[in-house]
Design a protein around this nucleic acid. Structure first.
Lengths: 192, 192
DNA sequence: CAGACTAATGGCACTCAGCGCCAAAGGTCA
DNA sequence: TGACCTTTGGCGCTGAGTGCCATTAGTCTG
């Protein structure tokens, strides 16, 4: 490797940051605190994350690519809606080992106002993945109304499922997601 | 009226702000700029709006109360989903005179990254109005899964409709909203 | 009319996120 | 050893947001 070697990693920073966030709260933790905990200059943190709000999201971009592939793998025989449904569930399957970290991460993201706000920008990319898939399946342009709506609705159901999952100590994320998708049927008059 | 009279109003500030935003862009307009345009101290702006990001939303809280009432007025014979559908449409009906301002406002909100992010906090209250209504209609608690999902989905459809409306110079907002709601049926297998 | 009272104002000083700039550090390679 | 390259991190700045408090401009009472 050419040039000065990095003195830290994304993982290092996240670890230090999550500890501090849990300890003092997100807003009360300054970037200076984090930099100090990592043993690095404040300026360097910005070389790893564009903003403080981005730290809890970690390497989200990379995981988005996985979501895209997951959807691509869904069988074409499955109706679009069910394919998205299954794709979302598949994408949100985690090993028990990782699950508790994921829960902590999502709890921070979904319950900290600053992060709730910032997350809208991340969700946009997530919706785009669904919109692209639906566009491909239906032959519409990805920017046209139907795929865009599909993206919004998919996100809506996922967020609702996450909230429900986080509020219930013992629930399963997969089940929460399934429930959201089936509730949509309920709402649309398959009874209630 | 007791005490020193206010030297400005929300309307004054919004007018000055929107002009500047249109002229220089949102990010490039400082609160100092706005304060100067209004002829008021920077500190005073914060007495009218909690943050720069709140200015474009105007008096959103008050309009939420109207949304709540609109939903309450929906006939009980209407299935919940349709009641929400009609309520959202009703709430987003504007006179031609106001419509162009509304369009400008929503264009700013939905196309400025900082504001997209911030808006998530406003949407939360909007979703709650739907959740409360659905809770009342179905007998669930407002915090339980079904009403929460309804809130998310309602917002999803409204946002999709707004995006579509803004991207088409000549479209009608009411029609865009109707289209979103019917697209949901399409997605769920009433064909496509 | 004078003086008490009240609420809005706005200046000041401060914290913190974020960014541009640039010299220094710490590696690799010929 | 010295050229080369990339990361680091310090410095200084801008701008949002906040707490504090004296000032201002009204109303109300005697």
């Amino acid at each position: 490797m050419i040039g000065r070697p990095p003195v830290t990693t994304h993982a290092d920073i996240e670890a230090a940051a999550f500890t501090l966030f849990a300890h003092k709260g997100f807003a009360e933790t300054t970037l200076e605190d984090i930099a100090q905990a990592v043993g690095v200059g404040r300026r360097t943190i910005f070389r790893y994350y564009p903003s403080k709000n981005d730290i809890p999201w970690g390497r989200f971009d990379e995981s988005l690519a996985g979501f895209r592939e997951t959807l691509q793998r869904m069988p074409a025989e499955l109706p679009v809606f069910d394919a998205v449904h299954q794709g979302v569930i598949e994408f949100n399957r985690f090993d028990d080992a990782v699950l508790s970290q994921h829960r902590e991460r999502m709890s921070l993201i979904l319950r900290t106002p600053e992060l709730q706000a910032h997350s809208a920008l991340r969700y946009e990319q997530w919706r785009k993945v669904i919109a692209d898939y639906v566009a491909m399946r239906t032959g519409h342009y990805a920017a046209s109304s139907l795929p865009v709506t599909a993206g919004h609705v998919g996100l809506a159901l996922a967020l609702s499922a996450y909230e429900s999952w986080l509020s219930d100590e013992n629930g399963s994320l997969t089940e929460s997601l399934s429930r959201s998708f089936s509730e949509l049927g309920t709402l649309m008059g398959r009874h209630g």
